[in-house]
Structure formats: C-alpha cells, structure tokens
Amino acid sequence: MATTQAAPATGAKTALDIRITVNGKEYNMQIEPQETLLEVLRNRLHLMGAKRSCDSQVCGTCTVLVDGMPVSACTYLAYEARGKEVTTIEGLMQDGRLHPVQQAFLENNGFQCGFCTPGMILAAVSLLRENPNPTDEEIKRYMRGNLCRCTGYVKIIESIKDAARRMNSGAA
C-alpha cells in the first residue's frame, strides 16, 4: 500500500498527526483538531464527490463510508477517521469497472443533476452490504437521510433493487 505525505497545516501548535486510509491509499497527514472529514477529503485530498450542502447531517450529500459505515463527513471530525478506512465515491470503481450500484444507477436513470448521487450510492452500498435483498420499505427507511430533489426517488429505488439483483447474481 502506497504511503503519501499530504501537505501539513502550517503554524498550528494544536495540529494532530494522523494516519488515514482513503480509497485504499494510506496517508500520513497533519490536521487541525477541528477539521471535518469533509474538509480533509475536499481541501487536502481534492476528492470532490462528497459535497457540503445542509451541513447538518440531514441531506446526505456528504455521505462517505468509514470502516464501511455511512457517516456525514460534514459533521465528523477527521480526527475520528484516524487509523480507519474511508471510502468515497471515487474509490468504488474496481479494476476500471464501475461498482454494481454505480452501474445500476446509470442504467436505471437513478440520477438527474447528480448532486446527491455520490452520497446516495454510498448509502446504497452500505444498505446492500447489511441487507442484500431489501424490500421497498426497507430501502426507503435506510435511505431516508439521503435527499434527492430531481428524481422523486422512484428511479433510485429501482436502481437499488437492480443493484441488489446484479450483486446477488454475481454479475456486475
């Protein structure tokens, strides 16, 4: 696993040294205690998939996975991700192939403007890991914290059900 030294913060006596794995790549970096994971991902690592929107854990556009568990990167200290594995939308693709959930969103028109999509897909990946065969009700309950203002959700639910079929049949 490659180790990359990210740019350290300057002139801060409160700075913390952390090691964090993002999308399979290990980083040693110096962060400020008050930096959120979203700030580190976007400002230091230039991963722009997770977005700041409501900034209060309501909308889900900043959803990333920490050790496989969805969190709101906007309200999660980067310090908490020390020693952990963070997955963002940029890390879902494997060997040049889209993740089955990505492929299903693409083929089922699961997005329009795309703003909510990275968070939506990561939440769906976590849902399907916990529950490989969710009912519509279970999908709605799990995804209720990810808001979409374009699709009306019908296409998203169809995408997730299609992704479940793809993953269960072993074909991407």
Binding site: Q57, G60, T63, V71, R141, G145
Partner: peptide, 12 residues
C-alpha cells in the same frame, strides 16, 4: 431507535 434521525446520525 430504528427511527431516530437517519442512519448516519445513528451510527455516530
């Protein structure tokens, strides 16, 4: 508890 906020809030 299953219905508190959303899954991200409940995880943390």
């Amino acid at each position: 508890e299953k219905k508190v906020a959303n899954v991200r809030v409940r995880n943390v």
